[in-house]
Design a protein around this nucleic acid. Sequence first.
DNA 1: CCACGGTGTCAACCAGCGTTGGCCTACCCT
DNA 2: AGGGTAGGCCAACGCTGGTTGACACCGTGG
Lengths: 198, 198
Amino acid sequence: MPFTERSESTRTAIVSTARRLFADRGYQGTTIRAVAAEAGIDPSMVMRYYGNKEGLFAAAVDIDLGLPSAADLPRDRIGEAIAGHVLRRWEGELADELIILLLRSACTNETAAEQLRQVFQRQVLPLVREISGDAPDADRRAALLGTQVIGLAMCRYVLRLPSMVAMDRPTLVASLAPVLRHYLLGDLDRDLDGAPRP
Amino acid sequence: MPFTERSESTRTAIVSTARRLFADRGYQGTTIRAVAAEAGIDPSMVMRYYGNKEGLFAAAVDIDLGLPSAADLPRDRIGEAIAGHVLRRWEGELADELIILLLRSACTNETAAEQLRQVFQRQVLPLVREISGDAPDADRRAALLGTQVIGLAMCRYVLRLPSMVAMDRPTLVASLAPVLRHYLLGDLDRDLDGAPRP
DNA sequence: CCACGGTGTCAACCAGCGTTGGCCTACCCT
DNA sequence: AGGGTAGGCCAACGCTGGTTGACACCGTGG
């Protein structure tokens, strides 16, 4: 292997191992020593390349949800589209354990929590604004959508509630789609099953 | 202070401090030394009374959601009732930071995750079964309800998404009630805003 | 060929952690 | 009154983790 490329290869070995361990064990549960050991290199290399543990974490967690733009979403099946995208991103073809890692870590690590807030602010909120046609309650809609999606991730991937793990993907998409659609486009002051509020 | 009561008072001092710190910093982020220091006693007392850190955690996290029975819930406003109960339990009159603590800790601590699964299994699932009249899809309904409620807790109390923190309680109840009602009693294969699925 | 810069290793430091055992002290019981 | 017991504190151990610095290695460029 050429000399100049060796650095790059160990860099990626470190960061990809770090992603896995952070995802498995959270921020505090992951040790630099463990990352180095599993990557087959010395702990001091981690320090050299990433400065400190926070630096490694920041390098490992660089999230792009890869959300489509509003124009590419079928308006009449928007719930299915969002739910499908989300699940593809977590357990399907585009699977990226980074997002779950970030969620896990954000529970006990303020840096991670802030990073997650940024992801929401910069990627989710704009999309919801676009979808809802810059409705004045777009913030509220985005927040509600966030609760449902994050709750799904928590129950299925982090807590692994048996009832949640047992559901297959299509059923999940079908179950969540109406709610997501409701949060995005529905009448928030009306019942979801057709009956108007008293 | 009488001799025999002194023990009890430091016991409760320890465990209540532990609750707060665990809630703030998670399992690994909380140190016995810190608990002892904030409680104004010696770390070794914690060991004497609770054996070890796991024991302290178990003592600190003993959750009773205090869910009402199905008979006491108004069927036509079941969503509002559940949402209201949940929020009262977290930030209202019955506020109990233990639940949030457990949720936070469960992200990185398998013991806590298991405990949370038990809470779901033993307290949430039976109620949902009762409400849904032992419907065959009660598990699915309970799981979906779980995602929404846990997602709410995560976004509002753990991640503190600004859009979520900003909403007042009545608005929150009104926004969530239709979805909760839908998961409990609605037609899961039908859109929430009145339009039947194609 | 040989110095130089970047790659990698080794050993150690230092702080913080959970945990332990010994000790003092204050109370209760006889 | 006095001995036993339980509450409480102190100092220390062993360990692990992040971090550091010195040193060996290897290509490349002069």
